[in-house]
Design a binder for these strands. Sequence first.
DNA 1: AAGCGGTACAACCGCCAGTGC
DNA 2: CGCACTGGCGGTTGTACCGCT
Length: 267
Amino acid sequence: MGRQPCCDKLGVKKGPWTAEEDKKLINFILTNGQCCWRAVPKLAGLRRCGKSCRLRWTNYLRPDLKRGLLTEAEEQLVIDLHARLGNRWSKIAARLPGRTDNEIKNHWNTHIKKKLLKMGIDPVTHEPFHKESKAEQISSHADDNLPQPGNHQLMLETDGANNMEDNSSSQTENSSSDDPRLLESICNDDSLLNSLWMDEPPFVDGTSWNNQPPPQNISNMSLPSWEDNCSWLLDCQDFGIHDFGIDCFSDIEFNTLTTLEMGESKH
DNA sequence: AAGCGGTACAACCGCCAGTGC
DNA sequence: CGCACTGGCGGTTGTACCGCT
């Protein structure tokens, strides 16, 4: 028996989302929370695959997302985490609040990869190309201990930034970060990085969107746990998207609206 | 102004792990 | 235990945009 497709292929729209579809999806999530994605398109009146809805929400519509390019500090954090974790983008994204795995993956492929190559560093091994022969030796020793961050010391020096392991002052120097204190705390948190490496659930992320259990029952979802982290949803729970006034939004929510407006103006 | 190539990023696809029956 | 189903992940593709000629 073949695997059932995630959605009926017939009548399912593909391609870029319209502002109207975005509004429908946002309205539905605001009203009902995140539950069974398979049912979302039908209930929300969308001719989309549930998977597509989930992707659209998590990668673009989520109100806690930051927009725009990664800051220098975020970029360094990505490099450092990538040295430890490899292409585990979701793990990396979990350490960058407001960033998605897709966004980081894209940024890695379009920006960081080239940057490292330009610097003569292999983006896969994080070793300088001319040292690659030595890399194996080093890595065999590294196995004895907790994973060390490749040779990002060299990368960071080359890049004019500082080492994550020794960044008690460096992060404050990096004024390009949106929230240097947050990044600093993440970078300094060895146990956090260790837990990442060990593939354990990161304790600081217990309330993040990625780990939210869906509301068990829409009818009695008085305070789904995932809303603890998104108080704005509580404010908006009883309203449709059209009922929102700009002033009830924080910057983040405003970004979502702005995105929608921009999208709408395009179409 | 048009054509072209490069870049950035949203979206899709296929696969896998977890879970419930 | 095996199957069906869902959600999540990583890789890849499509396309809009931008700068250059």
